[in-house]
Design a binder for these strands. Structure first.
Length: 501
DNA sequence: AAAAAAT
């Protein structure tokens, strides 16, 4: 077995790695580290959750000189959250070597970033657009850059960052080292590599390690209108440590987060229309476990690394199988076991096959839990709560009352009543509206062309029933909801049968 | 058709 100490890493970095709980290097780290140290360009084909950040972070930090005025390293990331997270991890790794990384991303007050830049971080972790902004303002100078890291390169490309990336790569010194990480290698990416990388070494993490070995993938067949209750029941049964629920649209995420909140769960929603400071706060809250459920669009599908995510729920199937792989990769991290549930409406059923083909792993069918299953789950939890109180809390002041009660009832009755109290279904009466989403589109089997996605021909549009026009008011709890053409979507009472006046 | 990202 290899340990980090075998890899010729600076003692101050070893110390922080040890504190972070890193013992054994992951395959990508083992392969990338020695090559990157020589200064050679590296292409790493690996997904998130494989320890990528440390794989480039360790050599990057070792290379930084502390006494320089200008930034020496740049990491480009596709999303703002990822930029923040990578910077955080680099700062942890570099904790004792006084190397600092600063995240630079859109949506944050630029004056603040300019002030932070005055502290001379050696490493900038940026989303491409905002970095360009700083370049134009002259607030970030690239003349001393000796290393560029492109993280999730395929993703940056598919998000349309090609020009930005090219401009940035044109603006940094030619003799820099370039490290590129990507889950896939589309041809467009290949042409960038040829142009901007210098005789790169290729490192591939083998397919087995790349996929999702320790994620238990299950699917549940549910009708659209049963999804919400099914979700609540599954949450009650499994009581996740942390869970991410993926919805298909921003609006859907808002509504779903509202609905779960009404049911008494500690939950927040996140999507790209929220102001950036709100997004940052939500992620912080989730990481620190002040909320148990994060409802998200695909903004959180990639790269997000929160330890303790035990469950991922695909409330709506993702648009393509690649996105599925990213989404479920939010769980089962750092060698832990994770469970991913995907809700499939009857019309979407054949997507399961496409997903299985992509992941090369069978999903298990699971029957939608019944009310009874859910209440048994809650009972189980209530029992656990009770045990925890007994073991960890003071309740000497309650014994008098307890003995009084024991005078009137037997122990079994009393404990049963306590369990009942603790396992009450929360907030059943609230009225919840959730807009119906059309099913993910199904590729009709018109020819064997299907290279990847299940997007393509044959939309739902022709087959859908005519929708009624009666829209009812929803509680306007979010200011981020965009109006839609009247009558295009239909509301219906989702969770509760009763509707309040 | 959705989402992400610079304002």
């Amino acid at each position: 077995m290899t340990v980090f100490a075998d890899l010729d890493i600076h003692p101050l970095l070893l110390k922080s790695l040890d504190q972070m709980g890193f013992e054994e290097p992951t395959p990508i780290q083992k392969d990338v580290l020695p090559i990157a140290k020589t200064g050679k360009d590296v292409i790493g084909q690996a997904q998130t959750g494989t320890g990528k950040t440390a794989a480039f972070g360790i050599p990057l930090i070792e290379k930084m000189e502390q006494e320089t005025r200008l930034p020496q390293g740049i990491v480009l990331a596709p999303t703002r959250e990822l930029a923040i997270q990578v910077a955080e991890e680099l700062n942890k790794i570099g904790r004792y070597s006084s190397v600092r990384a600063l995240p630079i991303y859109g949506g944050q007050e630029i004056g603040r970033q300019i002030r932070a830049l005055k502290n001379r971080p050696q490493i900038i972790v940026a989303t491409p657009g905002r970095l360009q902004d700083h370049m134009r303002r002259g607030t970030i100078k690239l003349s001393d850059i000796n290393t560029v890291v492109l993280d999730e390169a395929d993703e940056m490309l598919s998000m349309g960052f090609v020009e930005e990336i090219e401009e940035i790569l044109e603006s940094v010194p030619d003799n820099r080292q370039t490290l590129l990480f990507s889950a896939t290698m589309p041809p467009r990416l290949q042409s960038i590599l040829n142009k901007y990388m210098n005789d790169p070494a290729q490192v591939k993490v083998k397919a087995k390690e790349m996929t999702v070995a320790n994620i238990d993938q299950r699917y549940v067949e549910v009708h659209e209108r049963q999804k919400f209750d099914t979700l609540c029941r599954l949450i009650d049964i499994h009581s996740p440590e942390l869970a991410i629920v993926f919805g298909r649209t921003k609006r859907r995420v808002d509504e779903l987060a509202d609905a779960l909140f009404q049911r008494g769960y500690e939950v927040e929603g996140i999507h790209g229309d929220l102001p950036q400071n709100k997004r940052d706060k939500v992620i912080q809250k989730f990481k620190s476990k002040r909320i148990e459920i994060l409802v998200a669009t695909d903004v959180a599908a990639r790269g997000l690394d929160v330890s303790g995510v035990s469950h991922v729920f695909n409330f709506d199937l993702p648009q393509d199988p690649e996105s599925y792989v990213h989404r479920i990769g939010r769980t089962g991290r750092a060698g832990k076991h994770g469970v991913a549930f995907s809700f499939v409406t009857p019309r979407e059923k054949e997507h399961i096959n496409v997903i299985e083909k992509t992941t090369k792993k069978k999903m298990t069918f699971e029957k939608a839990p019944t009310l009874k299953d859910a209440s048994e789950g809650r009972q189980q939890q209530a029992a656990e709560q009770l045990t925890e109180v007994i073991e960890n809390e003071e309740f000497a002041s309650l014994t008098e009352k307890a003995e009084e009660l024991l005078g009137s009832y037997d122990a079994v009755t009393l404990v049963s009543a306590a369990l009942k109290l603790a396992s009450k279904e929360p907030g059943k009466e609230v009225s919840i509206n959730l807009t119906s989403e059309p099913p993910v589109r199904i590729k009709h089997g018109k020819g064997p062309k299907g290279g990847g996605g299940y997007k393509g021909k044959g939309g739902y549009r022709g087959g859908g029933k005519p929708r009624s026009n009666d829209r009812r008011g929803r509680p306007g709890s979010s200011d981020n909801r965009r109006s839609r053409p009247e009558g295009k979507k239909k509301d219906f009472a989702f969770a509760a049968k009763r509707r309040k006046g």
